[in-house]
Structures are given as structure tokens and as C-alpha cells.
Amino acid sequence: MGIEPGRLHFSWISSAESTKFVTVATQVTEAVRALGPNTRFIQPPLAEVA
């Protein structure tokens, strides 16, 4: 639907796999940070009501 590849990740981590969680979370963070801030699916904030 036009979202950059690399912004969406899937993983299956059991509650017992703490090290895998750390690894995946780090990788996801790095991958997304490399892409920069998201520009899609962002709603502009509502205008201030006077």
C-alpha cells in the first residue's frame, strides 16, 4: 500500500526468549531510524479551537 519496505516487521517471540526480543527490538529500531520519520498515515493535528 505504499509503506516503505523496512518500516514493517514481523516476529514471533516467546515470553521465554528475552535475548531474541532484545535483538529483534534493536534491529527494528535501527532499521526504522535509518528510514527517518514516517510521513505516511499521519493525521495533521486538529486546528486549535478558539
Binding site: M1, G2, I3, E4, P5, R40
Partner: peptide, 8 residues
Amino acid sequence: PERRWKYF
């Protein structure tokens, strides 16, 4: 992806 976003 950019083109596709625009297309939709």
C-alpha cells in the same frame, strides 16, 4: 513505494 503511495 513512493509511486504506489501516490497511485492509491
